[in-house]
């Protein structure tokens, strides 16, 4: 079989198609959110929140709650709001708060899973949650629809509030002084980020989510200099990398999550070199 036939063969399986659809939508959303998060110096929020989500997942597994989303989504959303708020009033600096929350959540999550063992293969369970190695290929049709619906909502919010988001990201005190409800938009970004991160856990796993949030934004910032062009390019690049990563992982049978991240990393390298070569990056 030629590689092309090989790809076609794999695409005859619905789970491969589902994985690709989910990959496209998730990476689009993470790229959109990534730009303001990176610019507000919240690059690590993805990482922190995904650890919290991991902890929540462990708790719901221990408590034997079947539909674990009921626990994971609210817990992650609340943590996101607390984190972004904490970054504002600077009692504990934003980065320290995220680091603190993220490691504690991780430790508690792993501890719980170990003490109250539900399945026989704890390390296997933990590993797949961390690296998302199998989850993406076990998506059901309803997972795909939830994912599409959430993504459409995120994109809608983004377009609707685009101008205010720019104002708040660029200069928060000016925005507030001229009547933009900055608190509302910060909270909105936090909530949406949390939801997307919970969804993205299925794609790349807990440990690699940050990559989906920060790489497209950073790559686009090497090459483009207006907010709009950075966002558009980041979205396109992110979708492209996820598709390449998913297809490559199927062809050479590597773990999906890490293959996508490597694709993003290579794209960043490429953008960095092009940016330097054309003298466009600052």
């Amino acid at each position: 079989m030629t590689p092309f036939e090989n790809i076609l063969f794999y695409f005859s399986f619905p789970f491969v198609r589902y994985a690709l659809i989910v990959g496209v939508f998730i990476s689009l959303c993470t790229a959109l959110l990534g730009v303001p998060l990176v610019l507000k110096r919240f690059s690590f929020i993805g990482d922190g929140l995904s650890h919290v989500a991991f902890c929540a997942m462990a708790i719901s597994a221990v408590m034997d709650i079947y539909s674990d989303m009921i626990v994971i989504v609210p817990v992650t959303v609340i943590s996101a709001v607390v984190l972004l708020r904490a970054g504002q009033n600077a009692r504990i600096r934003g980065d320290a708060a995220i680091a603190m929350l993220s490691v504690s959540a991780m430790a508690i999550g792993y501890l719980l899973m170990n003490i109250f063992t539900v399945s026989g293969n704890v390390s296997g369970d933990v590993c797949s949650t961390l690296f998302g190695s199998v989850a993406i290929l076990t998506l059901s049709k309803s997972d795909v629809w939830i994912c599409i619906a959430m993504s459409v909502i995120v994109i809608g919010i983004y377009i609707f509030f685009y101008n205010k988001l720019f104002a708040v990201t660029f200069d928060e005190s000016f925005a507030e002084a001229t009547g933009v409800r900055t608190g509302f938009y910060n909270t909105l970004v936090a909530v949406v980020t949390a939801v997307i991160i919970v969804l993205a856990m299925k794609l790349v796993g807990t440990l690699l989510i940050s990559a989906l949030v920060i790489f497209p934004a950073l790559s686009a910032m090497r090459l483009f200099k207006s907010f709009k062009s950075v966002i558009v390019f980041a979205a396109i690049l992110s979708v492209l990398c996820s598709c390449v990563g998913i297809v490559a992982s199927i062809l050479i049978s590597t773990p999906v999550g890490s293959t996508i991240v490597v694709a993003d990393l290579l794209a960043f390298g490429l953008c960095f070199v092009i940016g330097k070569a054309s003298g466009r990056s600052a």
């Binding site: 101008n163 720019f166 104002a167 200069d171 000016f174 925005a175 910032m221 207006s226 907010f227």
Partner: peptide, 13 residues
Amino acid sequence: PASVYEVVISGFA
């Protein structure tokens, strides 16, 4: 990344 125009018009936000 922000163009001059994007910054100026954000005054209306």
